[in-house]
């Protein structure tokens, strides 16, 4: 689709939004269909492929042995990287991650990190010397809007299915035996992002591509099982009022429960 047709689409999305309606006839809080596959990339220690209404993201977890940070000798570390591959959208360019990819990775990472879903102290191999570094890589394959929720679903599903590699000692030094595992990576919670856009006076869940383009503002909220909020990111140039934010948080908790039930079925 070229810029000109997007302008028409945006116009239509905005006109409908003033009546509280959506271009694909969804209700304001409805998600598009979600399909999740797990353990599909055999070299990953955990992996997932998510198709959220056509937005497709592949995630893989790799565990490596590293040294702990000097100020946290009794903790491992988790890291999240995302690439907006040029595959996913004609406007994405090859090259190192740009600001959008970095924002995506950091927001997904914060939701997981701040929930303490992964006990970093359980990632210690030898205190002060060797810890697990858990890398989650997100590869965006098809951008049909709402990359945040698709990436968050993919990351958490890959982590929830990840296994811890077997370790053997070569003298003093622990080495990974690739392909062999000693147990599951434990997750105490399922933190998930839920994203909303504000279009005129309407607030919609799970924005599709035309809705992303027509949006005044975007907000992503990570929640966990007990209804706590673990990360928030407001995006785009528009704004939210206090009342709107309160409504968004309430809906985020509800939509988080909806998504969590879907994830729990596949892990």
């Amino acid at each position: 689709m070229n810029d000109f047709t997007w302008e028409f689409m945006k116009d239509r999305v905005r006109k409908l939004a003033f009546k509280g309606l959506r271009i694909d006839r969804r209700g304001p809080l409805d998600y598009r269909p979600i399909r999740i596959e797990t353990n599909i990339y055999h070299h990953a220690d955990g992996s997932a492929f998510v198709d959220l209404g056509g937005t497709k993201v592949a995630a893989g977890v790799k565990m490596e042995i590293g040294s702990p940070f000097p100020d946290t000798p009794n903790q491992g570390a988790i890291m999240t990287d995302a690439e907006l591959l040029p595959i996913a959208n004609p406007t994405f360019e090859p090259g190192p991650p740009d600001e959008n990819a970095i924002e995506l990775a950091r927001v997904v990472d914060r939701g997981i990190r701040e929930s303490n879903a992964i006990d970093l102290e359980s990632l210690v191999i030898e205190e002060g010397k060797y810890v697990w570094l858990v890398f989650t890589d997100l590869r965006v394959l098809d951008d049909n809007g709402n990359l945040f929720d698709a990436a968050s679903l993919a990351a958490i599903t890959a982590l929830a299915t990840a296994r811890i590699p077997k370790v053997e000692y070569e003298g003093e030094e622990p080495k990974i035996v690739r392909g062999e595992y000693e147990g599951r990576l434990q997750l105490s919670e399922i933190p998930l992002l839920t994203t909303f856009v504000k279009i005129g006076t309407a607030i919609f869940s799970d924005p599709s591509m035309p809705e992303m383009k027509a949006a005044d503002a975007r907000i992503s909220v990570a929640t966990v099982d007990d209804g706590s909020i673990t990360a928030v990111q407001k995006g785009a140039e528009g704004s939210f009022t206090k009342q709107e934010l309160s409504l968004v948080f309430e809906r985020a908790i509800d939509r988080g429960r909806y998504l969590r039930d879907i994830v729990k079925k596949v892990i």
């Binding site: 070299h43 990953a44 220690d45 592949a58 893989g60 690439e83 991650p97 890398f135 890589d137 392909g179």
Partner: peptide, 17 residues
């Protein structure tokens, strides 16, 4: 043509560049 590999596609994590 641009061929890229996901970091998790191989036994040892490949750096993304």
């Amino acid at each position: 043509f641009r061929y890229t590999m996901a970091p998790f596609s191989v036994p040892e994590r490949k750096r993304p560049a």
